[in-house]
Design a protein around this nucleic acid. Structure first.
Length: 395
DNA sequence: AATTCGTGGCC
DNA sequence: TGGCCAAGAAT
């Protein structure tokens, strides 16, 4: 089954049932209760064991949801554990330095998330007695907490009947209802309304029937992440295949074309006593991209002509593939050997204008807010150790 | 409403 | 030296 289909292939609407005229949400064609029951049974059987599941700590739920924004589960697992070891409570996080938080976030991307999480923790600590708000409406006021994340925390941590609509749920609903993807606020509102219709009410007490809203939300996402896949959905294993109008196809909006760029960076090393130091450049504090973080100095492309890079790698950032070449230079300190002629050193090619350069002992690298590219480069070239949470997480 | 923000892994 | 997209949010 191919993903992209013509919207005209849509099947006719199913008979009306369980919706009022004038309501924003589309017709389901089945009962919400029946859908929940099938989904819930499947989820209880097939849910992955993830470190943030079954954890009765709203702060941990908050952290996991921030980390999971646009980031794969497999990538988050190790980082989530590391982060909680270092900052076990909101109180600990609120007292942290931003650079230390960014260092833990290094390589995860979307660094604004880390800054907003820190600001949120400081706000909760100072203004809310260290307790997260318990409703989606209030959670929404925290920096970095949008509509999805507010509903996720409210439902998972506090049992509120607030539907989540992430990329997984959107895909599941579009296929289930036989609709085409549409990037308008109105289309999105319709899907939110649909998701809310399917979400169970808040449970009261332990005698409550049905799934807790938090489990239902996670089940919807789990379905999208493990069966209702973007390309080759596993419909035959799907617990709601009999309710689905498309069995795994939906029309999608065309994505923007990828760009590609070639860039060069310098890995300069020097010995200082027993220590090895590497030359790092700090990005401007007001930079739009990765503000204040550390990276290897950039080299003009024409400065490296005729030289062979120590490493070539591809580094994709959103819509751009960066084809990166790393050139190494070993600097000999005075008194040890003759200095290389400066005019042939790549160090001289670093644009001096706004360069904020520093020599940094390689043993300190782990604690610094490196960009993902700098971290990846330093690890590949064995200047920096691969931290424990990476090992074994790539399988 | 349309852009921008990072990265990794898979095909 | 492609393309795709993931438990989105801010501007």
């Amino acid at each position: 089954m191919s993903k992209a289909t013509n919207a005209a292939d849509k099947q006719p609407a199913a008979p009306k049932r369980g919706n009022r005229p004038g309501e924003a949400a589309p017709v389901l064609g089945f009962t919400a209760a029946g859908f929940r029951r099938k989904l819930g049974r499947w989820y209880r059987e097939h849910a992955r064991e993830l470190p943030w599941r079954g954890v009765d700590d709203p702060y941990a739920t908050w952290l996991s949801e921030i980390m999971l924004q646009q980031t794969r589960v497999a990538t988050v697992i190790g980082r989530y554990r590391e982060f909680l070891l270092r900052f076990p409570t909101i109180h600990d996080l609120a007292a942290a330095d931003e650079a230390d938080v960014l260092a833990l976030w290094s390589g995860l991307g979307y660094y604004g998330r880390a800054r907003m999480l820190l600001r949120g923790a400081q706000f909760v600590e100072c203004e809310m007695q260290g307790k997260l708000p318990r409703t989606a409406v209030e959670l929404r006021t925290l920096p970095g907490v949008g509509e999805y994340t507010a509903a996720a925390i409210a439902s998972i941590a506090f049992g509120e009947s607030a539907a989540v609509l992430d990329g997984n749920v959107e895909r599941v609903l579009l296929r289930l209802l036989g609709e085409a993807e549409e990037k308008s606020a109105r289309a999105r509102a319709r899907l939110v309304a649909t998701a809310q219709m399917l979400t169970p009410p808040a449970s009261r007490g332990r005698a409550a029937k049905g799934n807790p809203p938090g489990d239902h939300n996670q089940a919807m996402m789990e379905l999208g992440a493990t069966l209702c896949l973007p390309r080759s959905p596993l419909c035959l294993q799907c617990p709601v295949m009999d309710l689905c109008r498309t069995r795994g196809e939906h029309a999608t909006v065309a994505r923007a074309r990828m760009q590609s760029r070639t860039v060069s960076h310098l890995l300069a090393l020097r010995k200082r006593g027993v220590a090895t130091e590497v030359l790092l450049e700090r990005r401007p504090r007001d930079a739009a991209l990765m503000a204040g973080m550390l990276e290897l100095p950039a080299l003009p492309l024409d400065a490296t002509e005729g030289r062979e890079p120590a490493l070539r790698l591809r580094h994709a950032i959103t819509n751009t593939n960066y084809y990166v070449q790393i050139f190494t230079e070993r600097v000999i300190l005075e008194g040890q050997m003759a200095e290389p002629a400066l005019e042939q050193s790549l160090l001289e090619k670093i644009p001096a204008a706004k360069a904020d350069l520093r020599w940094t002992p390689t043993t300190k690298l782990v604690q610094l807010p490196l960009t993902g590219l700098a971290r990846k480069t330093l690890q590949r070239l064995k200047v920096m150790a691969v931290p424990p949470f990476k090992i074994g997480s790539e399988r």
